[in-house]
């Protein structure tokens, strides 16, 4: 159990580290150029890994609906906005606000898709998040 716990924690560290590094690249270039390099280098890395261990191209490729490929396009904007934000409002604020958006929209998406949710916990969680977001704003 300690193995997965460490992995899961490290995932969080890697997310922040990669945003920090992309942010540094964007300082000397632009957020969009930085996002391009992030995706290209990631693509090369995963291609090499896939060639080594397989599983890159599934046998049911033709059956996969085209709309699932939208995720990659959205990722470009997500990475670029992360670089843009972190160089302006810092790592903590960027992380807090991105996670706020992710949590609230996640609840809305589950609710819209009819996935069962525990209403009191979701509502209370969203109220706490909105209160925290309000506090990040300048006074007055």
């Amino acid at each position: 159990m300690i193995g997965p716990v460490i992995f899961a924690f490290v995932i969080g560290l890697l997310i922040i580290l990669s945003r920090q590094i992309n942010g540094r690249l964007s300082l000397s270039t632009t957020p969009l150029i930085s996002s391009f390099w992030n995706h290209l280098v990631g693509l090369i890395f995963i291609t090499l890994l896939g060639l080594a261990i397989g599983d890159l191209i599934p046998p049911n490729l033709a059956e996969i609906p085209l709309w699932v490929y939208l995720g990659g396009a959205l990722g470009v904007f997500f990475v670029a906005s992360g670089s843009w934000l972190i160089t302006r409002i810092g790592a903590v604020n960027t992380t807090l606000l991105l996670i706020s958006g992710q949590m609230v929209s996640g609840v809305v998406l589950d609710f819209a898709r009819g996935v069962p949710i525990t209403l009191w916990a979701c509502v209370l969680g969203i109220v706490l998040i909105f209160a925290g977001m309000a506090l990040t704003q300048r006074k007055g």
Partner: peptide
């Protein structure tokens, strides 16, 4: 920045879903 970051978090939810 708040709107941009919150919106970007919503974008991430969609990207993760896809």
């Amino acid at each position: 920045y708040l709107l941009a970051a919150f919106g970007s978090g919503c974008l991430l939810t969609c990207a993760v879903f896809f």
